[in-house]
Simulated scan of single mutants.
Amino acid sequence: MKRIFGLVCVFMLFSSSLHAVAEEKSAKQSYDYTNSEFKATVDMLYMDGHSNDDLASCQVKQEYYQDVGGMFFDKGMSKDEILDYYKNELGVFAVNAPPGKGFNLVLWVLPFLLIFIMFIIIYYVVKRWKRNQFEAPVEEQTYSNELDDVYASMIEEERKKFV
């Protein structure tokens, strides 16, 4: 019985020392999340849709912060190296803003190009409407001189009645 009690005590002592080592290891991995370069790097990551979540309550965001912190602080990787790593692992969808080259460049430029083309079309349509508006009264004012003479004579007769 004494041997079993002794083995249990040794086992408990050993397991508690492992727990202490694990705590010490996790305490070592608390990084400075206020570093501006670190924040700029982390803000560019999409984080599987959790980039707008609260860090204190989102487990996925905490894991991303730990991974990026390990790369940034422990391994000394730069911002571009970290972003390239995630792009290679997860594709261009790993970052919030896709790179501006290739097909992605078309997606960046196309909305502005379409807006510009619509303004040009609207400009020419309005210009045509204005041109047609000024031409219409000119056509309506072309009366025959005979009709003017008839009206003038009618007005003169009515005027003579009252004078």
Rank of each mutant, 00 (worst) to 15 (best):
D80S: 15
Q66S: 12
L83H: 13
G102R: 14
M154W: 06
Y123P: 00
E139V: 12
K2R: 13
I121H: 01
L13M: 11
Y31A: 04
F116W: 12
P137Q: 05
D80K: 15
I117R: 00
I122W: 04
P98S: 04
K130E: 09
N35V: 02
S51N: 14
A22H: 12
S30P: 00
E158S: 08
A97T: 14
F103I: 14
D67T: 14
F162G: 02
Y46T: 08
K160V: 11
V10N: 01
L55G: 00
E24G: 09
Y85M: 05
V60P: 03
E146R: 11
N88W: 02
Q66N: 10
A136M: 12
L13S: 15
V106K: 09
S26Q: 10
K61H: 07
F112S: 13
S153M: 07
E140G: 01
F73L: 04
Y143W: 15
S57L: 10
D67E: 10
G91I: 07
K61Y: 03
N88L: 10
G102I: 04
A40T: 12
L83E: 04
N35W: 00
N88F: 10
K87G: 00
S51K: 11
V95T: 13
V42Q: 05
Y65V: 14
A40C: 06
L83F: 05
V68K: 10
E23Y: 06
